[in-house]
C-alpha cells in the first residue's frame, strides 16, 4: 500500500493564461480515502490525470512512498483510474473488460478467468460475465469498471466522480460498496467530486479545491465547524456571514455582542454559523439569545428553512418543522446561537 505525496503540483495548459492547477500540495496517508472536492473546472481531474501519469505537470512532483513517479510510465505506476462515464470497452464482454488489465500483464488465461470470477462475485455481478456493457444498467457498469480497476490490485485507486451518474438509491448502494472494498483491500484511494455530500460520506479526508488552488484539507466535519474562509463555508452550504470585531472571547456585530468558543481569533472578521445550528430559543439561555422576526418560511419536507431578520440583519436558519408549527411570516421568536457553533473567519 502506498503513501501519496503531492508537492506543489502545477499545470498550465498551452495557451491558457491561468493555471488549471496552482501549487497543490497534499499528503495522503497509506490506505486512506481522500476526496478532491470542488466545482467543475477547478482542476480536480487534471490532478488525477497527473497522478496517474496521463498528463505531464508543468511543475511540482508526485511521490509514492517518498519516491518521485514522474518519470514512470502510466502502466508502471500501479495507479488505476476509474472514469466518471465508466468507459467500459464496448466490444468486449463484461468478463473480458474485467480481465483486461491481467491480459495486458500476460497472465495465464485460466488464472484470468478464475480471478475475473472472484472479482465479479465481489462486486455482486457473478452472472453477467458474458454480457456486453451496453446490456448493463448504469450501476452495473460502475461495478464492472470498479472490478476492472481492483483486479490488478493497484497501489493507488483514482475514482473520477464515482457516484455522479447514478440514481439516488444506487448512489447509497455504490457508496457503501466502494467504502467496504476500499477498507477491505486497504488501497490508498483518491476520488474527485463536485458534491460535498458525496465527499463527506465517503472520504476520510477532504481536499477542497477552488479556482485551481487548495483551500482546505481536513476531516469532513471540520469543513462544517471550522471553515478557513467564506468561500469554503459557502461551498459547504454556509449562509450566515456577519461582519464585526472579535476580541477572542466575544464578537461585536450587528446582532449584538455574542460569546465565542475558546480558540477564536481576534480582530475584524466575519462571524459564521450554520443555518442548522440556529436554535429556537426557550428564553432560558444565558447567552447569545436574540429576538428574530420571520421574513419567510420555506418547507423542505423533513426540514424547514427560515429567513429571519435579527437587528436589521438577515439570518438563515434550518429547523425541525414541528418546532415552528405555531409561527407564521411576520411573527417574532427567540433564537439561540450556541457559542460552540460560532466561528470567526
Amino acid at each position: 500500500m502506498t503513501h501519496v505525496s503531492i508537492k506543489e503540483l502545477t499545470k498550465v495548459y498551452p495557451g491558457a493564461e491561468a493555471p488549471a492547477l496552482d501549487r497543490l500540495s497534499l499528503e495522503i496517508p497509506t490506505g486512506e480515502l481522500t476526496a478532491l472536492l470542488g466545482p467543475s473546472g477547478c482542476g480536480k481531474t487534471t490532478t488525477m490525470k497527473m497522478i496517474a501519469g496521463l498528463l505531464e505537470p508543468t511543475s511540482g512532483d508526485v511521490m509514492f512512498d517518498g519516491r518521485s513517479v514522474l518519470r514512470d510510465k502510466p502502466e508502471n505506476r500501479g495507479v488505476v483510474m476509474v472514469f466518471q462515464n465508466y468507459l467500459l470497452f464496448p466490444y468486449m464482454s463484461v468478463a473480458e473488460n474485467v480481465g483486461f488489465g491481467l491480459k495486458m500483464r500476460k497472465i495465464d488465461p485460466a488464472e484470468i478467468s478464475r480471478r475475473v470470477g472472484e472479482m465479479l462475485e465481489l462486486v455482486k455481478l457473478p452472472h453477467l460475465g458474458d454480457r456486453k456493457p451496453s446490456a448493463l444498467s448504469g450501476g452495473q457498469q460502475q461495478r464492472v469498471a470498479l472490478a476492472r480497476a481492483l483486479i490488478v490490485q493497484p497501489n493507488v485507486l483514482l475514482l473520477d466522480e464515482p457516484l455522479s451518474n447514478l440514481d439516488a438509491h444506487l448512489r447509497f448502494e455504490m457508496r457503501d460498496l466502494i467504502r467496504s472494498l476500499q477498507q477491505e483491500m486497504g488501497i490508498t484511494t483518491i476520488f474527485v467530486t463536485h458534491d460535498q455530500e458525496e465527499a463527506v460520506v465517503l472520504a476520510d479526508r477532504v481536499a477542497l479545491i477552488l479556482d485551481g488552488q487548495m483551500k482546505q484539507y481536513d476531516r469532513a466535519d471540520v469543513f462544517y465547524k471550522r471553515p478557513v474562509d467564506e468561500a469554503t463555508a459557502r461551498f459547504f452550504g454556509g449562509h450566515n456571514f456577519i461582519p464585526g470585531t472579535s476580541d477572542g472571547h466575544s464578537f461585536e456585530c450587528a446582532l449584538g455582542k455574542l460569546a465565542l468558543p475558546a480558540g477564536a481569533v481576534s480582530g475584524t472578521g466575519r462571524l459564521t454559523f450554520r443555518p442548522e445550528n440556529v436554535r429556537i430559543g426557550s428564553g432560558q439561555e444565558q447567552e447569545n439569545l436574540l429576538t428574530a422576526q420571520i421574513a419567510d418560511i420555506i418547507y423542505l419536507g423533513t426540514q424547514t428553512r427560515l429567513k429571519l431578520i435579527v437587528c436589521d440583519t438577515e439570518v438563515e436558519a434550518v429547523v425541525n418543522p414541528n418546532e415552528i408549527e405555531s409561527y407564521g411570516v411576520g411573527d417574532t421568536l427567540p433564537v439561540h446561537l450556541p457559542r460552540t457553533t460560532l466561528w470567526v473567519i
Binding site: K49, A52, L54, E75, M81, L87, Y91, F100, K103
Partner: peptide, 23 residues
C-alpha cells in the same frame, strides 16, 4: 479517455493501440 483507461490498467502504448484504439 479509453486509451487513458487502458494505460492506467497496465497496457503499453502498443497494447493500447492493438486492443483498444484499433477495435
Amino acid at each position: 479517455d479509453y486509451e487513458s483507461v487502458a494505460r492506467s490498467l497496465g497496457a503499453s502504448k502498443w497494447q493500447t493501440f492493438r486492443y483498444v484504439l484499433l477495435p
